Amino acid sequence: MTLTTGAPAPSFSLPATDGRQISLDGLKGRKVVLYFYPKDDTSGCTLEAQAFQSLRKDFEAADTEIIGISPDSLKSHDKFRAKYGLDFPLASDEGKDMLEAYGVWVEKSMYGRKYMGVERTTILIDRDGTIARIWPKVKVPGHAEEVLEAARAL
């Protein structure tokens, strides 16, 4: 499924770190950054998490919640958060239902081998649950700053 700006964000409810359950309904009234990443504690994913963490106060000032989502387990997320001092929630979609609903669970290719994985994507959702902006195939350098600017402009 391909998401488009201006469309309602697909509903979801996922277990997250700190024993939380995160759902689209529970986030209504706030701006939300959903950043989808392939795997905890890999180089690109660590740099992306650290970039969002470094701007955490700025996102808070823009009334914007940051949520990282991957198919990793909560146990893996907890280790990743502890290792890098991340204080925003990481949600676990081991069943990949949300990843598929958001169109980020895709066929990838490495060294000629095809496999299914998460396409690094960020989605900004407005206070009404509408998709305000989509960043597909994210390149990490400068990305968190670009998302912050978009969140401030909402």
Rank of each mutant, 00 (worst) to 15 (best):
S11D: 15
F12W: 15
S13V: 14
L14R: 11
P15Q: 14
G19K: 10
G19A: 09
R20Q: 15
R20G: 10
Q21L: 15
Q21N: 15
I22W: 03
L24N: 12
L24W: 12
L24P: 07
D25H: 14
D25V: 11
G26V: 12
L27V: 12
L27K: 11
L27F: 09
G29V: 12
G29I: 13
K31G: 10
V32I: 14
V32P: 10
Y35K: 06
Y35G: 03
F36W: 06
Y37H: 10
P38W: 08
K39P: 01
D40Q: 09
D40N: 11
D41H: 02
D41A: 13
T42C: 04
T42H: 06
S43C: 11
G44L: 03
G44E: 01
C45Y: 08
C45P: 07
C45Q: 05
T46E: 03
L47F: 09
L47G: 04
A49E: 02
Q50R: 14
A51N: 15
F52H: 12
F52N: 03
Q53W: 04
Q53M: 05
Q53N: 05
S54A: 14
S54V: 08
L55I: 07
L55G: 06
K57T: 14
K57M: 10
D58T: 13
F59L: 09
E60C: 04
E60R: 12
A61P: 05
A61W: 10
A62K: 05
D63W: 01
T64D: 09
E65T: 14
I66H: 00
I66L: 13
I66C: 04
I67E: 01
I67V: 13
G68L: 04
G68F: 02
P71W: 10
D72S: 03
D72P: 04
S73W: 02
S73A: 09
K75M: 02
H77N: 14
H77E: 08
D78R: 07
D78I: 03
D78N: 13
F80S: 00
A82E: 13
A82Q: 14
K83W: 03
K83T: 11
K83E: 11
Y84V: 00
D87C: 09
F88T: 06
P89R: 08
P89G: 05
L90M: 15
A91P: 06
A91M: 10
S92N: 09
E94D: 12
G95P: 06
K96F: 07
D97N: 15
D97T: 13
M98S: 13
M98H: 12
M98Y: 11
M98R: 06
Y102E: 09
Y102T: 11
G103W: 09
V104K: 02
V104Q: 08
W105C: 08
W105K: 05
W105S: 07
V106D: 07
E107H: 09
K108C: 03
S109R: 07
S109E: 15
M110T: 10
Y111V: 06
G112R: 11
R113Q: 12
R113C: 00
K114N: 01
Y115C: 07
M116T: 08
M116D: 06
G117I: 02
V118S: 00
V118D: 00
R120C: 00
R120F: 00
T121P: 00
T121E: 02
T121L: 01
T122V: 01
I123E: 00
L124K: 04
D126P: 02
D126Q: 05
D126F: 04
R127F: 02
G129Q: 04
T130F: 04
T130W: 02
I131W: 03
R133S: 14
I134C: 04
I134F: 02
W135S: 01
P136M: 01
